[in-house]
Amino acid sequence: MIVGGCDVGSLTSKAVVMKDGKVLGSMLIKSKARPGESAEEVMNGACAAAGVERREIMFCVGTGYGRDRIGFVNEAVSEIACHGRGARWMVPTARTIIDIGGQDCKAIRLDAEGTVTKFVTNDKCASGTGRFLEVMARLLGVGLDELGELSVRSKNPVTLANACTVWAQADVIQFLNDGVPLEDIAAGINNAMAGRMAVLVNNLGIENDVCMTGGVAKNRGVLAAIEKMLGLRLRAIRRHDPQLAGALGAALIAMDKTAGGVK
């Protein structure tokens, strides 16, 4: 049976098409102003990548900020549940999941069966979110995906006095004006991000294994900084793109709903 998962986030929209527990195709796009339009485009893209027709999808679950505005889904499920499910599929031993999305960050704890037992999220603030990194990358004049590679080359990371996006910008501009090497500023940015996240994760309480999902999971600098701050090794995600965890989880939940659940 073919199922779908569609995750309309604040910055990116993701869709996954699955059959019998295997990913047939997926797609990731920049979110548009209207969640419905993002969902249509990304799901069409995922279907094309999978080589299936939209009508062949028997059950589809929507998630993300725009989940209630996706016309074609059979059910909307919170991104906490979807990220938990998607992360568990990618790392079967995961008990704690760190997810950093475009405008929020979450820490989720699962029990042995993969059920969400507790979660914490950031409050109304861009600090510790993908938006923070996006703003900082723009200030440095580098691509978001370059920030991680840049920071691992740092020898002497700067310290940002504040994790607040607005105040951190002022710090970064000062460092740029002082001629501090870009890699040291990038490392300082990633450390600030990791520090904010570590507070959240410690608040939840860590249970091994720990993995990280969301777009920021592809930033090596943030991963290394979080590992250092939490004093543990994050389980690497290789089975699929960690940014697709929400859409993957949504597709897996869709599979559960059609009684063909795959752990």
């Binding site: 909307a76 919170s78 059920t115 979660f119």
Partner: peptide
Amino acid sequence: ETGRLKMRLDAFLERIDGKRRT
């Protein structure tokens, strides 16, 4: 800022549903 709150609330209600099921 009801979007962020709704996400948490939905997840919390899902957690309660999970507890009901078990």
